[in-house]
Amino acid sequence: MRAIEPWVKAPLERFLGESSARLTLLMTSSGQVVAQHGFTRSVDVMTAAALGAAIVASTQEIARLVGEPKFLSLVHQGSSQHVFLSGFETPRGRWIGLVVFDGESTVGLVQLFFDRLVAELVAAAPREAPAQRVLPENFERELNASLRALFGR
């Protein structure tokens, strides 16, 4: 498990241990990765983050169309692997969790422990101002720094 923000590690480790999730990604609503578990290639992380953020954004629009403030979570059920996606508010802004799980877990367990993860993240988040927005001229440097933190290289 790798996290850019150190205070994310303990709650995420508890979630991983309890939910038996195979892959987990925490990201901002714009798709900037905050922490990951299980991914071995940076390209997979960036792709999953971009797709996850896009899916959540799309479902938010569907929610708006049907008059729902927002959907709490979304589950894609596969034959052997499943994806759980949920957006949630933190003191650092809106984040998204993407969890891939298989027969070792169930959607009920993932939902249950994800809710606890969110509560722990909200409680653990430092209250100071969030990091400055990434400017285009610093984007590549920030991206490389994030990938080094997430993959240790």
């Binding site: 877990s105 169930t106 959607v107 009920g108 367990l109 939902q111 249950l112």
Partner: peptide
Amino acid sequence: ASDGLIVAESLMTGVDGRAVAALAAS
């Protein structure tokens, strides 16, 4: 059994049905 979600329940207040369902199914 496959997803740990409640199909029907008759639980008293104070019992976290969602947690009991998920953990018992697991």
